[in-house]
Amino acid sequence: MFEARLTSGKILKQLIEALKDLVQEANIDCSDDEISIQAMDNSHVSLVAVSLRSGGFDHFRCDRPLSLGFNATNMGKILKCAGNEDAITLKAEDDGDSLSMVFEGPNQDRIADFGEFARGARGSDSPPGSRREKCWKIDFNFATMRGVGVLVVIFDRKIYELKLMDIDSEQLGIPDTDYKVTIQMPSGEFQRIIRDMQVLGDTLSISCTKEGVKFGVQGDLGTGNVLIRQNAHAEKDEDRVMIEMEEPVELTFALRYLNFFTKATNLGPTVILNMSPDVPIVVEYPIGETGHIKYYLAPKIDE
C-alpha cells in the first residue's frame, strides 16, 4: 500500500507539466524516504530526475518499494482537473494497476452546500469505502479523457483513477559529482534568457569566468550575449545571483532542451546550474523544503 498526501497539490501539477514535454512515459518510484522519477527523453540527450522527500508530505505511507509506470500526458490531463489550491492524495495498492488521485478543495464548507443536490442527483454507484449517500460516479465522457480512467466526485473531493503501465525504463546511475562551477540565479531570469536566445539560434554557449556568467548564441540573424554578474547581497533571496567557481568552464548546449527545462520555472524562484568541463550540465529547481527537479543535458563536444 502506498499513500501520500500533499497539501500543496499544485507542486504535483507543476511537476508533471515540467516533464511531460520531455518524457512520455516514466515510473514513479515510491520508497520509505521519497517518491522519485528518473527518465530520459526519447533521444537520450537529456535526463530528468525528480525527488519529493516523504517529510514534505503531510501524510506518507509506503509499505514496500513500488514502481508506478505512468503516461505523462494522461497524468497531466487528470492533474489539470485539480485546482491550484487543492490537496492531492496519491494511492496505489501493492499489486494494483491504477493510481488513485484524490483532489480536495480548501473550502470544506462546500460539502454541506452540495449535500441535498447530490442525494437527488444521478445514480449512486458508490466506490468502495465511500459514504454511499454522499457520492456519485461518472464515467469519463470528455472526449479528451476517454479511456484514461474513471472520475468519482464526492462534493469537493474528486477521485480519479489513472491506469498504470509496465515501463522498462533504463535507469542511469548518476554519481555525486563536485562541479567546477555552481551558479544560483533567479529562475525567471534564466527562463527569459533561454527564451530570448532561441530567437537567434539553436545552440547556447554558457561560459563562466571571473567576470560572471556569459550566455551566448550565434545564428543567421546575428549574435546575442548576456552577462550575469554575481549579486550575492540582493535584498530578496530570490533575486540573488551567486557564482562559485573553481576554474573557468565553457560548454555549449542545444537550446531546444534548455527551453523544455524552463517549464519548471513555476516550481520555485531559484535555479541552480552546475557545470564541469565535458560533462552534462545539471539544471536544478529546488522545490521548497520538499525536494527538487533536476535536468541533465549532454553538451555538444568537439570530437
Binding site: M40, H44, S46, A298, I301, E303
Partner: peptide
C-alpha cells in the same frame, strides 16, 4: 558544428 552527445556516453546503466 559540434556534435550532440548522449547521456549514455557519460553515465552507465544501473
Amino acid at each position: 558544428k559540434k556534435p550532440q552527445m548522449r547521456m549514455d556516453s557519460f553515465f552507465s546503466l544501473k
